[in-house]
């Protein structure tokens, strides 16, 4: 990519923006997260990405009472409070709240790197915290680091990660990982490769439930043509890339629904009309189990303890031509 080694940082009154060659980002304290991610002129965020703690229960989850044990994570997924924000530009802390401290910044600030950190407190009992760090580099790449603070007394998690909701449905996605839908306890049959998936298929289980998980993924690229921008006269496909840290993998699912939308439906046709792209990029995934569907638990190795810390990271960037 032909780019300068500096980007512009706009220390606003309520938001902090970063602009560079082919990208502009806005992080908002009021909205408690990254509010805008524009690459190549296209907005990629519908609402700020948030930590996710819930999957739509599978039939096996229902059978073994997982919802009864871990149901508080469902509301934690829906409601959470931002309890801390920190901003740093080239490692120099920027005072928050930004106004009136931002009066010291005359015009645009130039930087090689800017970091915005959000701390979320869960509504679980006991509560715990999640810290999400967005590290933005002048070339436009974002390194997202996510830390879940383990807490004794909390029930097991079905998943942990970040959920990105995009304004419109994707045309397709590509990824390097395993074939098909895989879970930690069901991925031996997955064949490594690069796969392209047209549209945003939802696995048509009789009762909608968690689906389309992809384990052991190096990268995933989401391609969209449709935008909400009223000035857009002509649809143009472009993509965004989420990729694992060097030597690591991510898990992801890319469907048009949130876990709660899936959770609500008893049949496929009850799902709302597909209008967004919901990409979850996960650091931990619970297995699906298979011994039976009326009580047997997922094998121990595929549980996610909420008492242990979870740390993972990934990158967001453009698609290399």
């Amino acid at each position: 990519m032909d780019c300068t080694n500096k980007m512009k940082v706009i220390v606003g009154d309520l938001t902090i923006g970063m602009r560079g060659e082919g990208f502009s980002y806005i992080f908002s304290g009021a909205k408690a997260g990254m509010e805008s991610l524009v690459r190549d002129g296209k907005e990629w965020l519908y609402r700020p990405p948030m930590p996710t703690f819930w999957r739509a229960l599978t039939d096996n989850d229902r059978g073994n009472g997982f919802g009864l044990k871990s149901g508080m994570w469902m509301s934690a997924d829906r409601f959470m409070q931002c309890v801390g924000i920190a901003v740093a530009v080239d490692d120099r802390a920027v005072e928050v709240p930004l106004a009136p401290a931002n009066n010291v910044y005359g015009g645009d600030v130039e930087a090689e790197r800017a970091t915005v950190t959000f701390v979320y407190r869960t509504i679980t009992v006991p509560a715990t915290k999640v810290t999400v760090v967005y590290e933005v580099y002048a070339r436009g790449d974002i390194h997202v680091r996510v830390h879940y603070e383990g807490r004794e007394g909390l029930p097991e998690l079905p998943v942990f990660g970040m959920r990105f909701i995009m304004p419109t449905c994707a045309d397709k996605y590509r990824y390097e990982g395993l074939s098909g839908e895989t879970y930690p306890d069901r991925m031996a049959g997955g064949i490594p490769g690069v796969y392209e998936i047209e549209g945003l298929p939802v696995t048509p289980y009789l009762v909608p439930q968690d689906c389309n998980m992809h384990m052991q993924t190096k990268w995933v690229e989401v391609y969209r043509s449709k935008v909400l921008d009223n000035t857009c006269k002509e649809e143009r496909q472009s993509g965004i890339r989420f990729f694992a840290e060097e030597g690591n993998n991510i898990a992801f699912a890319c469907i048009p629904y949130t876990s709660l939308e899936l959770e609500n439906a008893t049949h496929q046709e009850e799902l709302p009309a597909a209008r967004r792209t919901v990409l979850t990029v996960l650091g931990a995934v619970r297995g699906v189990g298979g011994i039976d569907s009326w009580g047997a638990d997922v094998e121990e190795a595929y549980h996610i303890s909420a008492a242990q810390d979870i740390d993972y990271g990934f990158w967001i960037g453009g698609i290399e031509a």
Binding site: D59, Y183, P184, R186, A188
Partner: peptide, 15 residues
């Protein structure tokens, strides 16, 4: 009968 494949299941077949 084993590996009850109701909905999204069939995890743990290796065992």
């Amino acid at each position: 009968e084993y590996m009850h494949d109701m909905g999204n299941s069939l995890g743990g077949m290796k065992s």
